[in-house]
């Protein structure tokens, strides 16, 4: 059942630019550094002995913003596909549980974002190689900067999906999303408990792995809360 529901979701997002967005987000983050290094490569090379490390840090300064913005855009896209066409009542009238519908939506978004993170990792590696940052490629760090922010942001995804599916007026989830983006941008002054801080991988113990576990844990809780709220509500 789940498989078929997800196939249906993937059909619905066809030609809506989802895959393009996944690609654009991944490329955008790296393109930002292409411009940065393109304009002042020599200066940036003098900033640190560890050129790879410094480059990855530069990349990572945009990753949280891009992920949070991507989540806002994708969740809003996904629910507008339903809201615009009044399709909620049509899916819900099918012999499937509302929980499954919600799970299918969440999974589709999680997959698209994962692929986007994966692409970003590849683009990061490719441009790093092009820049000639040194022989030793820090593959562990590369993996960490590509995938940790993704897992750490699952809580934001669960939260945005919840708000977007239960709002008739998409202005509300988007405004909340924009505020979240500002939080993500101000991560350094945010307390550790705020979900928008986590994609930055910062915390008081300096252990990025903690943010990954938080993202997964709180993501699961917020997912459950959103799903229960969605099942409880009447379909309009």
């Amino acid at each position: 059942m789940m498989g078929r529901l997800m196939q249906a979701e993937f059909i619905k997002i066809k030609r809506k630019g989802f895959w393009f967005l996944a690609f654009l987000g991944a490329l955008g983050v790296v393109a930002m550094q292409m411009v940065n290094y393109g304009v002042r490569k020599d200066y940036l090379f003098t900033q640190s002995e560890d050129r790879w490390g410094y480059y990855l840090m530069n990349i990572h300064s945009f990753t949280p913003l891009a992920i949070v913005l991507g989540i806002v855009i994708l969740t809003s896209f996904l629910s507008s596909v339903e809201n615009e066409t009044n399709a909620w009542k049509q899916i819900i009238a099918l012999p499937v549980s509302k929980r499954m519908v919600y799970l299918a939506k969440f999974t589709v978004l999680a997959i698209v974002l994962f692929i986007s993170s994966f692409l970003m990792g590849i683009f990061t590696l490719l441009y790093g190689l092009y820049l000639g940052l040194g022989e030793a490629i820090p593959s562990a760090d590369l993996m960490q900067y590509s995938f940790y922010p993704y897992f750490a942001s699952l809580a934001v995804l669960a939260f945005q999906l919840w708000v977007a599916t239960v709002s008739q007026n998409q202005a509300i989830p988007i405004t909340i999303g924009v505020v979240g983006v500002i939080f993500a941008y101000s991560a350094s002054v945010l307390p550790d408990w705020m979900i928008w801080k986590w994609p930055s991988l910062m915390n008081e113990w300096n252990d990025p792995m903690i943010n990954v576990w938080w993202g997964l844990g709180a993501g699961a809780l917020l997912y459950l809360a959103g799903m229960l709220d969605f099942t409880r509500r009447d379909v309009k």
Binding site: L69, I73, F77, Q170, I174
Partner: peptide, 12 residues
């Protein structure tokens, strides 16, 4: 028609 498309351009 959607919020998402103008927002994407805006973000870009």
């Amino acid at each position: 028609k959607s919020y998402a498309a103008p927002l994407t351009v805006n973000v870009v």
